[in-house]
């Protein structure tokens, strides 16, 4: 089918090519991408050709692409998975880890094998433990609007004019630094890297971000129910004291308008 698409409609020359690589994830990240609804159609019309994604297209083997959106962690006892993630790094200019599993392992951090009929499938690693990852989009499921923003910024970075490239770089920097920060995340990060560091000011962002309602506030400070936390990394990444980039966020009105206009 995709072949016919290519034959029938010449892809717009300056679109970027994007693929969705599915490791051990649940496809919830892809659903989130699709939950841009009409915006998804606009992205595909104007900015990105979807060149790979087993759930959406018939291409069976990983092609060369500008941006790989990787969902899921990697089972290191599964040769195909390990081979595919390495291939993804070779074929993609930019690798984006989408969602808690790809970034931090998420619920696969709890996997310990022993289940029929592949008891040896006990070790799942976040993508960043096997290849270099450029950009992180944490959360479970990740937020459609953040995936959208990253896609638009990736387009500007690769195809935009100088100013647009500069903006895209600035926007993506903290998400790149999150990728540099490492592959471990937990509600405990709020304690280790915010409260213990004397940085918490009790805004409540972490509790709002938590997808399993594991975080409450006790006298204005977060309490994490560690027996609910799934290790998706949303709370820490959402915290304004994990990163706050003064060269981007104060421009929120203009940037949001620009993204809205781009998706019209």
């Amino acid at each position: 089918m995709a072949e016919t698409i290519k034959k029938e409609e010449k892809p717009v020359a300056d679109k970027i090519t994007v693929g969705h690589v599915h490791m051990s994830g649940c496809t919830g990240c892809l659903v989130s991408l699709a939950d841009n609804y009409g915006g998804l159609l606009t992205i595909l019309d104007k900015y990105a050709d979807l060149v790979y994604g087993l759930t959406l297209a018939d291409v069976r083997h990983i092609p060369k692409m500008d941006v790989a959106l990787v969902e899921g962690s990697v089972c290191i006892q599964d040769k195909i998975s390990v081979q595919e993630i390495k291939e993804t790094r070779e074929k993609a200019a930019v690798v984006v880890a989408v969602g808690g599993c790809a970034c931090y392992g998420n619920i696969t951090r709890f996997t310990r094998g022993g289940q029929q009929n592949q008891p040896q499938h006990e070790s799942y690693l976040p993508v960043g433990d096997l290849i270099k990852v450029d950009v992180y989009i944490p959360g479970c499921a990740p937020c459609p609007q953040l995936i959208r923003n990253v896609c638009v910024m990736a387009y500007l970075l690769l195809k935009g004019n100088k100013d647009q490239q500069e903006l895209a770089k600035k926007y993506l920097t903290p998400l790149m630094l999150l990728a540099d920060r490492g592959t471990e995340a937990c509600g405990c990060d709020l304690m280790y890297d915010v409260v213990n560091q004397g940085l918490c000011m009790g805004c409540g962002s972490c509790a709002a971000a938590c997808p399993v309602r594991a975080i409450t506030h006790e006298y204005g400070k977060p309490n994490v129910n560690r027996e609910m936390c799934i290790k998706c990394g949303a709370c820490y990444a959402q915290c304004p004291r994990s990163f706050f980039n003064f060269d981007v966020i104060p421009e929120f009105e203009g940037i949001m308008d620009a993204i809205d206009a781009a998706l019209k």
């Binding site: 989130s32 939950d35 989009i137 944490p138 959360g139 499921a141 990740p142 937020c143 459609p144 609007q145 953040l146 923003n149 926007y171 903290p174 998400l175 805004c203 409540g204 962002s205 709002a208 971000a209 938590c210 997808p211 990394g233 949303a234 709370c235 990444a237 959402q238 915290c239 304004p240 706050f244 981007v248 966020i249 104060p250 929120f252 940037i255 949001m256």
Partner: peptide, 17 residues
């Protein structure tokens, strides 16, 4: 600041921005 970060980087704030 948290609100604006949440609008531009809605990590766990689906459909809020």
């Amino acid at each position: 600041q948290a609100v604006r970060k949440g609008q531009l980087y809605p990590v766990g704030l689906r459909d809020v921005p």
